[in-house]
Amino acid sequence: MPKITYRHADGTQDSLDISPGISVMQGAISGGVKGIVAECGGAAMCATCHVYVDQKWLAALPPMNAVEHEMLETTAAERRPNSRLSCQIKVGPDLDGLVVGIPDRQL
């Protein structure tokens, strides 16, 4: 199973094995990773699953659509060039080793 690492703002991290096909957000929620709220359950409507993707993984991710782009304009923590919504990133074998940073706040 692909391993995904979630880095917290305080420097700690959680590494989880995630079943292919579910999203980086769902993996975090099922694994009890703190700091991902995901109030809308993945409908790209709440912007509380915001993550900063490790630079070297950016190119490997599926491209961002217009909806995700709009929603990232409304995040609680600042939007950066490597900002993504973790509910829009589906985990597959190609993302084994992915590292994402969790912002200090989502609300």
Binding site: I29, A38, E39, C40, G41, G42, A43, A44, M45, C46, V67
Partner: peptide, 18 residues
């Protein structure tokens, strides 16, 4: 209960849910 489907889910998941 974050996972209920009362607002649907996926790309059509309720746009007015907030």
């Amino acid at each position: 209960v974050i996972k209920h489907v009362g607002f649907g889910a996926g790309i059509h998941g309720c746009v007015g849910q907030m």
